[in-house]
């Protein structure tokens, strides 16, 4: 039970980061390998707001999400728009390079030590002999809330539906007068903002350091693939599956399996069901 909650919580983080991968991929067909470093930036900005400036946790949370989101939009506008139409490889290298730059920036600005972010979630509840720590619960609820908000946004607002439309058919979106470039920037902003939120939620568990995003991003990528790259519920489910596998493998299997088990499962998955859990084979009607 304890393991399940913890696995669920870690999985939620993977899911959120995977969601960022998928959103950007669906809309712009780019894979953003700097996603994990955006998560790290989010955690650091929140840390700076709370510890350096002495602001309230929630204010810091908001500042970090908004700042990193805006930064994501800026990245799209200034950097990534230049490489649209270039080979995929160029984009992959570019985003990996950007990630390295963010890490350097973070170590220069905030230092390369390990920091603790004070949060209001320090207590525990004991229900029937099971200890539920508020930290992990906050991750699960935060994820649920965020997903609910995003779901409502994508399905019930004009601009949200326009985002869906743009990712389904970019040319047709242009024909509808949808400002496609602006939509791309917004999608980057959402992805970066979600990554930042994930980073802040994760901060009490892993503590904050400049490399916190790396391992998370790699597993989140696996989660996105597991869920069928391009499916949003798939990304979340994939994240949760990977998180659960990781924790159960860590508890029951010999040392070392904690980190490899998710990839073993991913490999098996790719052999058995290459399109992923929720993958859909797109067919075009003529």
């Amino acid at each position: 039970m304890q393991l399940t909650l913890n696995g669920l919580a870690v999985g939620c983080i993977y899911g959120l980061v995977a969601l960022g991968f998928v959103l950007i991929y669906k809309a712009t067909e780019l894979v953003n390998f700097a996603q994990g470093d955006l998560l790290m930036l989010g955690a650091f900005v929140c840390y700076m707001a709370v510890v350096w400036w002495g602001l309230d946790y929630w204010v810091g949370f908001l500042i970090a999400v908004v700042a990193v989101g805006a930064f994501g939009a800026l990245l799209d506008r200034v950097v990534l728009r230049q490489v649209i139409g270039q080979p995929q490889f160029a984009v992959v290298m570019l985003t990996i390079g950007l990630g390295a730059m963010f890490r350097t920036f973070a170590s220069v600005t905030w230092g390369s030590e390990i920091y603790t972010l004070p949060t209001p979630f320090s207590g525990v509840w004991t229900v029937g002999g099971v200890t539920l720590s508020h930290q992990y619960l906050s991750i699960v609820f935060g994820t649920l809330l965020l997903c609910g908000v995003l779901y409502a946004f994508f399905n019930h607002t004009r601009i949200g539906v326009a985002m869906q439309a743009t990712s389904q058919n970019q040319l047709a979106a242009y024909y509808m007068g949808i400002p496609v470039k602006l939509i791309f920037s917004l999608i980057w902003a959402i992805s970066a903002g979600v990554a930042a939120a994930a980073g802040i939620l994760l901060a009490p568990v892993t503590l904050i350091d400049i490399n916190m995003g790396l391992a998370v991003a790699l597993k989140a990528f696996a989660a996105a693939v597991l869920g069928g790259f391009g499916s949003i519920p798939g990304a979340l489910m994939g994240g949760i599956v990977i998180g659960l596998i990781e924790l159960y493998a860590g508890a029951t299997l010999p040392e070392g399996f904690k980190d490899t088990a998710p990839y073993i499962v991913l490999l098996i998955m790719l052999i058995v069901r290459p399109q992923g859990l929720f993958g859909t084979m797109a067919r075009k009607k003529v």
Partner: peptide, 19 residues
């Protein structure tokens, strides 16, 4: 055609009126 395949017919039409 180039319709938006995963949106409903009504949503497609609303996208037409996006502006």
């Amino acid at each position: 055609r180039e319709v938006f395949p995963f949106l409903s017919v009504r949503e497609n039409l609303n996208m037409g009126a996006y502006t």
